[in-house]
Design a protein around this nucleic acid. Structure first.
Lengths: 340, 340
DNA sequence: CCTCTACGCTTAAACGATTAAGCCTAATCC
DNA sequence: GGATTAGGCTTAATCGTTTAAGCGTAGAGG
């Protein structure tokens, strides 16, 4: 990356001062009364020398980097990978750069990445915050750092966020299983205090209660993030073998992925007998789309909206937190009988 | 992001000059004979004021940003998402930041992203270059920009790269199908000039020839990137229905995903009768891992190695292109008969 | 003929950091 | 006791860019 040409080089070549070159190349020639002749010459030389502005240097002066920091749970998780792609595209078209970080749902790591990105002078954040990160979000808010929360939010902190209507999504999912004739429906969720999970849980409970189910506790199962595999194994075994449940609503795609694996382990008969609904599609069962109904989130719109809101905050000091809640769709394909 | 504290603020607070603060906070106090007393005071104040260095400003002086640019085909593709995650982790532990960009296998977009990242003063690149990008790679090489190519490489440009032994991987995959008793084996690949695809093709051809197959042309099928869906539909129809082939080796995961979908469309009987091998695992059939044998690439090692090589180049001007070729494994699970 | 304005440019200062060089005082050396 | 050295700091320059302010010259206006 050596021998990059700077304004100085161009100025020397053309025989003018540095600011003049700066004016011309940032299209402020007119306001600064640069003669068209000189301007033309400067542009020519700049092109010939393949001038690329040093955005870091510019940032120093302008105090704006046109860079946004995005922290998600795990960039290799399909949901976040897709979201990341959308954010990247949207940001690039607006001439912003994106720096990603993964928190692994861990507060300390989240904090570390956050600070790291701040050190990089990002103009703002798009965050899928982990459980227990309220303090950091408050800290950001106090310093009026532009930010938008995605996927998650904290009910008691007023921050711009882009989410889906998790409550009604869960109602949709649960009702689907009810209408399929199941009277005993289980739901597997993460053991987490995050509000969007609580919303999903409430939706599930409400739908069951509306259908007359009373004793809901044994139908819900919580698994840990780090102990996912072992917890899921125990959970599926309990639900399917002990409780003999044949309808499960997995509240995230990672849960479904592991859950389906465990269902398979119990044999294809059980797998085929069990009706499953999943929150969020996942390419995991993409080519079996017909098989697993799923709650479809408008990821593309969510990502674009998040970028839009964030950049509005950054560029015009919009203080009022903008909130955006999208509705989901339950996608049900024709069930291709695997027993065919 | 306002009210950030700078060296100046600390200096004023402590009552010393800016450089003194700089020396202390960058652990160069000793060399510069700062008294332990002053140093202590500076550290205290820095902490109290929550000082975070402005890495952009530092970069301006040091001419190093500790940032690397990573351009892949599509960050939402599982292979690249996983690779991205590995690169991110490895970079973070080395105190480097990563900026990602997707090229969509499109040269113009690749060039655009490349220039964009250069503008951001990245110290070097990790690139999965698209077809036809030789010119840009050469340009980077001429300016001695540190870089490592991953997944792909150009046979005629000497650049550090981290790839797998594509030739032997293909031999493995093809031999697997041969050993399963198939005498007519097809392979679907992208219609691309990229050398790693050529290597895969050669492996396939060589394995077939070694087993005595002569007329290989009708057994190979090329599909386009943009016209993937329609091409695949036609291809699968030709191979499976006209040629009555029941063994297919898909040379990438995206090909397999679409190919399997098309196979499904032909009915589950055909899907079940057809033996498939895929280059690279994909969470698409992750929970059906038992079903589809795949060529496993050591993504984690590849990503780590790429970062390592790149940072070596950046930090010690290692000019000699380092090359790293990993071997793959054919992963075959027990075939779970889908027919029950 | 003197002043004013327009024009086309330059100088200067700043952003936040790094790094070389210099200055002053007090202690050490022979 | 004069020179040297060590210690503890400051000044100055610089990275590439932006932006405000200033400075000549020439033509217009009175």
């Amino acid at each position: 990356m050596k021998g990059k040409t700077s304004l100085k080089d161009i100025a020397r070549e053309v025989g003018v001062s540095i600011p003049l070159v700066s004016y011309v190349l940032s299209d402020k020639g007119k306001e600064n009364r640069v003669s068209e002749q000189t301007a033309k010459r400067i542009r020519e030389v700049a092109k010939a020398m393949n001038y690329q502005p040093n955005l870091n240097a510019r940032s120093l002066k302008t105090n704006r980097t046109r860079t946004i920091g995005v922290i998600v749970a795990d960039i290799s998780n399909p949901f976040f990978a897709t979201l990341a792609r959308v954010i990247e595209d949207e940001a690039y078209t607006r001439d912003y750069t994106v720096i990603f970080g993964s928190s692994d749902e861990n507060v300390d790591k989240f904090d570390k990445v956050l600070r790291f990105l701040q050190t990089r002078q990002v103009d703002g954040f798009i965050l899928a915050a982990p459980e227990g990160s309220q303090e950091m979000i408050r800290r950001l808010k106090e310093t009026s750092t532009p930010m938008v929360m995605v996927d998650r939010y904290f009910r008691d902190i007023e921050v711009a966020h882009v989410i889906v209507d998790n409550y009604h999504a869960s109602v949709q999912a649960t009702n689907y299983l009810i209408k399929k004739g199941h009277d005993r429906i289980a739901s597997v969720m993460y053991d987490s205090q995050l509000d969007h999970y609580a919303d999903r849980r409430r939706g599930f409970v409400a739908a069951l209660q509306a259908s007359g189910v009373q004793d809901i506790e044994p139908l819900t199962a919580k698994v840990g993030h780090v102990s996912l595999k072992s917890d899921m194994k125990r959970t599926i075994s309990r639900l399917v073998q002990e409780e003999e449940i044949r309808a499960i609503y997995f509240q995230t795609n990672t849960l479904a992925e592991e859950g389906l694996r465990q269902l398979m382990n119990l044999g294809k008969d059980i797998l085929n007998q069990t009706d499953v609904v999943v929150f969020d599609q996942n390419s995991t069962y993409h080519f079996l789309e017909n098989l697993i109904p799923y709650i479809k989130q408008p990821i593309k719109k969510m990502g674009q909206k998040a970028v839009e809101i964030l950049i509005n905050q950054i560029e015009s000091q919009v203080a009022a937190p903008t909130t955006c809640q999208f509705t989901t769709k339950l996608k049900v394909g024709k069930k291709l009988s695997v027993n065919g």
